[in-house]
């Protein structure tokens, strides 16, 4: 589904990703862990087409096609979804209107007719229940006045609405208490199918108690330096990132 080969990317002349490679197949959950500043959010930005970052080398294939041929909104329509580390507030735009536009744009790209208001509201209610989103949040402006936890939950709600093929969750767990964490993880698990895949970016292993990854990768200084099964997360938690650093120096 996703193949990244030797990816190099920079922002304002600063090299951040330095030869990252990764392969994700349908049905898989990949966890990417790494210390602050190692380039995790940069990876998600490059995958979603954020133009602030410049790719200087490497290739990315999504469903067999060159990802760089698609602009940001085409990538979204092709099923790539990012749960933002810092969701943006959009005053004046109601969640209902925002999601309705997004859902119908996606449908349009698949030559489906737009959903009627009735259908849409019903669908929205179902998805809200799925991620246990408080009902009044949906009536407010996008992320405006939401608490940190509510913003993250709102990201998962949008993911439920848009049913992406490839979901990238960028530190969706940070700032969540344990109950919220469980709710978010439950949502992600319920949305899992054999056809879609997730990249779960996290700093802490505790999210991985709830979302069980097939692979864990350690991102360090712009490269994936270690990949293994879910046990790697526990090891990291126990020994800290210094352990990786030491191992690398050996």
């Amino acid at each position: 589904m996703l193949v990244i080969k030797n990816l190099h990317a920079e922002i304002s002349g600063k090299k951040i990703l330095k030869g990252l490679s990764l392969e994700v197949k349908p049905g898989e959950i990949h966890a990417i862990m790494g210390p602050n500043g190692s380039g995790k959010s940069t990876l998600s930005a490059v995958l979603t087409g954020n133009e602030n970052f410049t790719v200087t080398e490497g290739e990315i294939y999504y469903e067999g096609k060159d990802l760089f041929q698609l602009n940001f909104e085409e990538r979204a329509k092709a099923g790539i979804f990012l749960s933002f580390q810092y969701p943006v507030e959009i005053p004046g735009v109601s969640m209902i209107n925002f999601m309705k536009t997004a859902v119908n744009e996606q449908r349009k790209s698949k030559n489906l007719p737009p959903m009627s208001s009735g259908e849409f509201l019903k669908y929205m209610r179902e998805m809200k229940d799925l991620v246990e989103l408080k009902s009044d949040l949906a009536n407010r402006s996008v992320n405006v006045g939401f608490s940190g936890g509510e913003k993250k939950r709102n990201e998962i709600f949008q993911m439920a609405m848009l049913k992406p093929k490839l979901a990238i969750l960028d530190e969706t767990d940070s700032g969540l208490d344990i109950d919220a964490l469980r709710v978010v993880a439950n949502g992600v698990n319920k949305l899992k199918t054999p056809e879609n895949a997730s990249i779960v970016i996290t700093h802490y292993q505790r999210l991985l108690d709830f979302i069980v990854p097939d692979f864990v990768h350690v991102l360090y200084d712009g490269k994936i330096v270690k990949s293994a099964g879910k046990e790697l997360a526990l090891e990291l938690e126990e020994k800290g990132y210094n352990w990786i650093q030491k191992e690398l120096e050996v």
Binding site: T48, G49, N50, F72, E73, A76, K77, F81, L82, F84, P87, V88, I90, G92, V93, N97, F98, T101, A102, E105, Q106, S109, V142, Q158, L162
Partner: peptide
């Protein structure tokens, strides 16, 4: 960009905002 990432093109995002 937030709108773009949800599949909403720039012109449309501006209209919405």
């Amino acid at each position: 960009f937030y709108c773009n990432q949800r599949g909403i093109a720039t012109e449309e995002a501006i209209g919405l905002i």
